[in-house]
């Protein structure tokens, strides 16, 4: 075999503090409120789910595509239908302007073991692109150097 591999393989995500990742995640409801197209795509979606950094996930209440409540976990006796949690480092990489290969998609992160998808995932699958774009919003807000 002869092989060519251009560029540099990136084996580690971008370094960032867990606090910065949590703060960026906490801004997602405000970012969604400014994104009419994404909100409209979720107009049939009502779900209570658990999302975010594995070190500090959030209970997210979505109604008609809008986040109407987001509270830091744990919250007493709060239930959720599904949970998508990632390592803070994986979110930091996912939010780069050009995420490194293998860190650029929610399911790429689950495949590599940097994220977990649990529970009753039907709402996640029926609105898969919505959740991919929702969790990518900090990328457009300047996390990783782009605003």
């Amino acid at each position: 075999m002869s092989s060519e591999r251009g560029g540099q393989s990136i084996d580690a995500p971008i370094s960032s503090s867990a606090d910065a990742v949590v703060a960026a995640f906490a801004a997602i409801p405000a970012l969604l409120a400014r994104d009419a197209a994404l909100t409209a795509r979720g107009r049939w979606l009502d779900v209570d789910c658990l999302l975010g950094p594995s070190t500090q996930p959030f209970h997210v209440t979505i109604r008609a595509g809008q986040i109407v409540d987001m509270a830091r976990a744990p919250a007493l006796m709060r239930s959720w239908r599904f949970a998508y949690r990632t390592t803070p480092a994986a979110l930091a990489a996912y939010w780069q302007p050009r995420p490194p290969a293998g860190w650029h998609d929610l399911l790429a992160l689950t495949k590599r073991g940097e994220a977990t998808l649990e529970g009753e995932i039907h709402p996640f699958m029926t609105h898969l692109q919505y959740f991919k774009d929702l969790l990518a919003l900090p990328r457009r807000n300047g996390f990783g150097g782009v605003s």
Partner: peptide, 20 residues
């Protein structure tokens, strides 16, 4: 029947496209 086939197929493979 309870998942839109076109939407879920496209959303699944969307992550296989390079980001920029």
């Amino acid at each position: 029947p309870d998942v839109h086939g076109g939407e879920v197929c496209a959303a699944l493979v969307s992550g296989l496209i390079a980001p920029d």
